[in-house]
Design a protein around this nucleic acid. Structure first.
Lengths: 140, 140
DNA sequence: TATTGTTATACTCTATAACTATA
DNA sequence: TATAGTTATAGAGTATAACAATA
């Protein structure tokens, strides 16, 4: 648990900061091309995989459930998302992507994959090495 | 420029997303421990290195200059930052960290380095490999 | 009683446009 | 004319607290 302050570690920390910065810039830009904010794009991405209770969306986004109401409201007003009852528990509302929502999410994913193209500069062996190092770093 | 969709690349993209998510959670948590928002912590970090014109802060944060006014206002109200005239150009205001601001920034950096401790799980060779892969990925 | 989603409120961040004082 | 900083405005995200419906 000793905080590392050696130059090598600091350099890696710096590089990770740059990755984070670039990731965000590209994510938000891709979202903006579909007139979505970053938060809206993340929620739409989740819902394009499966219908999800409001509360669970909040846990995945690490924010308060009350915020999800507004984000889903705005997505619903644009016809990208709809609220459905949960047959098993009448307190629960399932947010689900509409047809158009899934199409938008697919286009978003495509432009994101394109934005993350920097990985294309690495060989397969290098990508494997990067994957393993990131997994170890994340404790997976 | 061909978007890669092979499983290995998608796995690395996924892992980078997780790094970004964890980086943000830990950054915001560290900032909150000093009653700062993420944006305030970033600006304070910049100013603890050197006094900076408002406009330049905006460029570094990739946001509009008008936003910096409010962020610096709030930091100034707490005595962490002050505005100084620029002797060379009377239009320019230099934002600079106060003594207390530098102390807060130092504590923030320390808790951030601690938060980024996951790198401690990697050997020196592994950190070197990670550094080189990230540099190649970022095009450095 | 506890949980789900919502509403109400207040604050921060954000972009845009118009303003001022300098250059 | 152009630039630096600010103000005014509006929209979005955020947390907190209180509420109705349901479990």
């Amino acid at each position: 648990m000793t905080p590392r302050t050696d130059p090598l570690t600091l350099e890696v920390v710096e590089l990770i900061g740059e990755v984070v910065s670039r990731y965000h810039a590209e994510y938000d830009e891709a979202a903006a091309q579909h007139a979505l904010t970053g938060a809206q794009a993340r929620v739409l991405g989740l819902l394009s995989v499966e219908a999800t209770p409001m509360r669970r969306i909040a846990r995945k986004l690490k924010c308060e459930p009350s915020n999800i109401t507004g984000i889903v409201d705005r997505l619903e007003a644009r016809g990208l998302v709809e609220r459905r009852p949960d047959p098993a528990d009448r307190r629960v509302k399932l947010a689900a992507a509409t047809e158009e929502g899934r199409r938008t999410a697919a286009k978003l994913r495509a432009s994101l994959d394109f934005a993350r193209e920097p990985l294309g500069g690495l060989s397969e062996d290098e990508r494997t090495a990067l994957r393993d190092l990131l997994k170890r770093m994340l404790g997976n």
